[in-house]
Design a protein around this nucleic acid. Structure first.
Lengths: 265, 265
DNA sequence: TTCGTATCGTGTAAAGCATACACCTTTGTA
DNA sequence: TACAAAGGTGTATGCTTTACACGATACGAA
């Protein structure tokens, strides 16, 4: 079938730059003079609050899921939010995202990538806070949720309605990012158990891309990639003929990913 | 020829999350209690310096160019850096990027998109500063450089060696981002004059993608898109047979970009 | 004026890839 | 034992991509 991700690109838009004068380099006095003390320079810069928010996707029960917690702000009472936190003074932002994941799910070796910065001045009711959105994919079975005081839960992605802050917008951007990335790289395997049937794999792609795919062509495509290892084991617990279980050949993919050109459904 | 962008994806890597305890929400006292004052909560968060850096690409003389200024820090004497600035307290970050562009090049209606956040704690010698990288594309002929006290210059991309801060890394990330985006969307037209020959267009794609393309197939591909308007004018000032000049049909593209599936070289 | 050089402009055949499509097999359950 | 549910497989068709060459046009130099 004809299908490709449709990514909306920012138009060549007339975003009005707020009328304001230059605010930086005020420490610099003379034309052409070099600044000797970078620390003084940086101290003259304004500071702002920065957080990380993670859209944590899982796949279970043939559905795309997202891990959310209840907001602990009274004005967002009964609304859900992404998992987020501040960034420590000497912490790389990727490291902050990994830390959040580890604290909340116990998982360490996880797919994680930056999506986008969200910076509307009024996005947080407590003042100006910019946030860096991350997308992560994990197998819902392979971790233990760390239940803190906020209820942490897997939510069916399609059932999510209103959210706290601008987190609905962040979640949608992360989902579009995921739709695109899963066709560029074989990320889906991060959402599945180590051994999976081809039906599970296809259901995953169908759920994320929102399409239905022809079973024979889907199998042909993955067969031609030669990145699946046949385990010679079979599914159990299914009320029908069990399918074969496969593993993804991560090592082989790592070796040849320079030549990788994407999966095109 | 067989060619597709090769994007390096972040490996499922073992980035060690810095061992540290949770730092936020320290204002929250009781289990399950809701926070009434978001302003107090946000005030308890740490703050950091945030800047924007723009990788401004142009195309001239059959070459990809980048707009750079001399660093005004003594420790980076004689090194070049991207155009950047702080973000004002109530300024959206996209708006800050547009402002920088307008201040330095006088251009307002320009292609601009976020690339990535760079956040290594030691990336700035003056202290912890995170920066949000933007990529912009503009026609080198259509703007007036605002010469401030730093020399601002177009540099041939391929000739750039060392740069101030981590700007080389940012520039490379922006270039890879550009290589990928130019195959997903017809961005190249932002780098060309309004009217251009097919050879100029092909040279642009070849320069950005770093490949050579078959001329007949290239023309066939663009002809089949039906997004070029034949102006019935011809190049002048060329020491050979002049080619026809075309315009890009932006309106038609806007209408059908939902169905756009990319250009594949 | 002529020749050399650089680019313009064009078409086709072959290979490869994506698509559409159906039947028998295997397992579990009633 | 028969039914329900999914497993597993191949082929023909059309579309897309690729590889490839030659005459025409304009300019500049001799």
């Amino acid at each position: 079938m004809v299908y490709k991700t449709k990514i909306t690109v920012k138009p060549l838009s007339l975003i009005l730059s707020t009328a304001m004068s230059k605010i930086s380099y005020s420490i610099k006095k003379k034309e052409g003079a070099l600044i000797k003390d970078p620390v003084m320079l940086v101290k003259s810069y304004p500071k702002m609050h920065v957080t990380v928010d993670c859209a944590i996707f899982g796949f279970d029960d043939n559905e795309l899921k997202v891990l959310l917690i209840r907001s602990d702000l009274e004005i967002y009472k009964d609304l859900w939010s992404l998992l987020g936190d501040n960034i420590a003074d000497d912490e790389d932002i990727d490291a902050a995202a990994y830390r959040i994941l580890k604290d909340r799910t116990g998982m360490q070796d996880v797919y994680l990538e930056q999506v986008k910065v969200f910076s509307k001045p009024d996005r947080h009711p407590g003042g100006r806070v910019i946030t860096i959105a991350y997308c992560t994919l994990l197998n819902t079975r392979h971790h233990e949720l760390m239940i803190h005081d906020n209820e942490i839960h897997w939510h069916s992605f399609s059932s999510i309605d209103e959210m706290a802050f601008d987190h609905k917008e962040i979640l949608l951007a992360s989902y579009q990012w995921l739709q695109k990335r899963i066709q560029e790289h074989p990320l889906g395997f991060n959402l599945l158990p180590e051994k999976f049937s081809l039906r599970e794999l296809q259901t995953l792609y169908e759920a994320i891309l929102g399409v239905t795919l022809d079973r024979r062509n889907f199998r042909k495509k993955f067969a031609s990639m030669k990145l699946l290892i046949d385990t010679n084991e079979f599914e159990g617990d299914v009320p029908h003929r069990p399918g074969k279980l496969y593993k993804f050949n991560f090592e082989k993919y790592e070796k040849q990913k320079n030549r990788w050109t994407g999966i095109d459904f």
